[in-house]
Amino acid sequence: MDVEMMKTAGSVRIGNHAPDFQARSTKGDFRLSTLRGQWVIFFSHPADFTPVCSTEFAELARRQAAFDSLNCKLVGLSVDSLYAHLAWVRALKDLFGVDIGFPIIEDPSMVVGRAYGMIDDAAFDSMTMRSTFFIDPQGIIRATTCYPHNVGRSVEEMLRLLRALQCVDGADVLTPEGWDDGQRLLLPVAEQADGDRDWFCRFEDRA
């Protein structure tokens, strides 16, 4: 496995370049940087054949077309081997009737997880690995989420956050609480002629 390691474990933050890596996956040899030009949601899970992860993967498979329509690639990661991943994919097909169309990366040495700060350097297992990284087309991390191993993520929230990131990308607007596609946007804080700041919520004029 070839990984572009960060200098310090756990140092990956919003605004950083996502560390590149090459590894085996359920879709063949994989290198993260080949996905430049597209949004990427890179997410980890503690282990294959676990209840919470299985429900997440099943729902991600069902919503695959929604991510595709937003020019976003899904990439999963677990410490389990490629052979375990392949067996789990077959089991998910049998149990939920879904096809996992996105790659699942093997990380038995936990080197990728540590490069992304998903696992502490001193950790002996992957129980902290339920992290998600939203990576823009230039390879920059734009948002992250981290859940404990016993709480499942919301696929709908993953989609909402992706839509919000794409909406504000390169635009001088802000998204208010709970914003989703089609709703009104906020305008940045305005500077008044006398130097005062108009800090109160100003919504975009939607004619």
Rank of each mutant, 00 (worst) to 15 (best):
F96M: 12
D99A: 10
I104M: 11
M110P: 09
V98A: 01
A122E: 15
D107H: 08
D94C: 13
G101C: 10
A123Q: 02
D107Y: 04
S126M: 08
V98W: 05
S109M: 09
A123R: 04
P108M: 11
F102L: 04
A123I: 01
D120G: 13
D107P: 08
E106P: 03
G113T: 03
I119C: 03
G117H: 00
M110I: 11
I119V: 12
I100T: 00
S109V: 13
G97A: 08
Y116M: 01
P108S: 02
I104T: 05
S109Q: 14
G113C: 07
D107R: 09
L92Y: 02
D121F: 13
I104V: 12
I104R: 02
I100F: 00
D121I: 10
D99Y: 13
G113E: 03
M118G: 06
S109I: 14
D125P: 11
D120E: 13
I104K: 07
G113D: 03
I105Y: 06
M110V: 07
V98K: 05
I105M: 02
D121E: 14
M110Y: 06
F102I: 07
S126V: 10
M110L: 08
A122R: 12
D125S: 13
G101D: 11
S126I: 03
S126G: 09
G113R: 00
Y116T: 01
D125E: 11
F96L: 12
F96K: 10
I105R: 05
G117E: 00
P108Q: 10
V112H: 01
V112T: 05
P103I: 08
P103M: 05
F124S: 15
M110D: 08
P108D: 00
M118I: 04
F124C: 15
D99W: 02
I100G: 00
G101L: 15
D94W: 11
Y116W: 07
Y116F: 06
A123Y: 04
I104H: 07
L95D: 15
R114I: 08
V112G: 01
D121W: 08
E106F: 04
A122L: 15
P108R: 06
A122M: 13
R114S: 08
F124A: 15
D99H: 11
M110K: 09
K93A: 10
I104A: 05
E106Q: 13
D99M: 13
M118H: 00
A115H: 00
I104L: 15
P103F: 09
V111E: 12
V111C: 06
V111M: 09
R114F: 05
I119R: 02
V98G: 05
P108A: 04
D107F: 04
V111T: 11
M118V: 03
I119K: 02
D99N: 14
D107A: 07
D120T: 07
A115P: 02
V112Q: 00
V111R: 11
L92C: 05
F96S: 11
M118P: 01
V111L: 12
D107S: 01
F96Q: 10
S126A: 14
R114T: 01
A123S: 13
D125G: 10
G101K: 12
V112N: 03
I105H: 02
I100N: 01
G101Y: 07
D94G: 12
G97F: 06
I105V: 01
A115D: 07
I119M: 09
E106C: 06
G113N: 06
P108T: 07
F102G: 02
S109W: 13
G97D: 11
L92K: 05
L95Y: 14
G97W: 06
D94N: 12
F96E: 08
S109K: 12
